[in-house]
């Protein structure tokens, strides 16, 4: 894959996403970082919800993978970046996958498109047959 997803700079953690339990743990980890960088309660909730959608996608559509998460800095701003990576089938049509209501599985088709609306930065990098990487960042105001 070729994308330039941001890499969390300091003390980032990598956790597996291979069960429903892991999705819960990923959510909790993102929440604790969001609190640490003092995101507002609404922004925390948005980021954790986005992380929950993306972690589930990694599990259900990607066949499992990992989440890398950590604090990031740009100029004087602090944020939380979470990167979800799998080695699954990839997404053949990204535009379609980012359309509200479109799903390749049994979901509502809001996971990916909804997650994008809930965060400040969103990058999606995918290749059919080799996997998908989605990176999201929410900045403290």
């Amino acid at each position: 894959m070729t994308g330039l997803a941001p890499v969390p700079d300091t003390g980032h953690e990598t956790v597996p996403i291979s069960s429903n339990d892991d999705v819960v743990r990923a959510r909790q980890l993102v929440r604790s970082l969001a609190q640490r960088c003092k995101l507002s309660l609404v922004d925390q909730t948005k980021l954790v919800t986005a992380a929950s959608e993306l972690a589930r996608n990694t599990l259900v559509y990607g066949g499992g993978g990992v989440m890398r998460v950590g604090l990031v800095r740009r100029d004087s701003r602090v944020g939380v970046t979470a990167v979800f990576e799998d080695s699954g089938p990839g997404i053949p049509d990204v535009d379609q996958a980012l359309t509200d209501g479109w799903t390749s599985g049994g979901g509502l088709g809001l996971g990916l498109s909804g997650a994008r609306r809930l965060v400040d930065d969103f990058t999606l990098d995918t290749e059919v047959g080799s996997g998908t990487q989605v990176a999201v960042t929410k900045w403290a105001r």
Binding site: V42, Q44, T45, L110, G114, A115, R117
Partner: peptide, 14 residues
Amino acid sequence: MRPAVAITLVELGL
């Protein structure tokens, strides 16, 4: 429902 949850759900599209 918490206010932050309501805001997030609507933005999510639900």
